[in-house]
Amino acid sequence: MALDPSFVGRWFPVAGTYQVAHEKIREFADAIGDDDEIYRDPGVARALGYSDVIAPPTFAIILAFRAQQALLCDPDLSLDYRRIVHGNQSFMHHRPIRAGDELVAMLHVDGVRTMGGNDMLTVRCEITDGAGDPVTTARSVLVVRHSDEECDR
């Protein structure tokens, strides 16, 4: 079943703020196998000109992913979560995410289209800080696989 095109152009705000914790940054750095001290030691971060430890460049996916969940779980979209494959991802960082940030995420549905029997959903997550200044723009293309053929992407 094709995705409902009426979702295109809609904003899905994420309730509440995301508090960026030191331990979460450390946990994420551990999970990607990166032992860089800038993710752990505020002194190292300050030496590079940051007020506190900063997060790895793909940390923003945590917020983007949370924002996507609200959409993907919308019963009107009727998606099988297991059939969703990540097609593309991009980040534009207006500034690094750092410990202590209180971030707000808004998800925008940029487009839906069908290609090769699969539905493609393009979403954009705009992440801003407590002052309302832009932090990161994260774009994702999600592919909803409809065939049972072996995945090639």
Binding site: D34, L48, I54, A55, P56, P57, T58, H86, N88, F91
Partner: peptide, 25 residues
């Protein structure tokens, strides 16, 4: 993707140097 950015942040000496990152899986 995180491993790809790790390659670059290590080389750049500062993860905050990464201003854009894009991949297709």
């Amino acid at each position: 993707m995180a491993l790809a950015s790790r390659l670059v942040t290590t080389w750049a000496g500062d993860p905050g140097a990464v201003v854009g990152h894009s991949v297709r899986f």
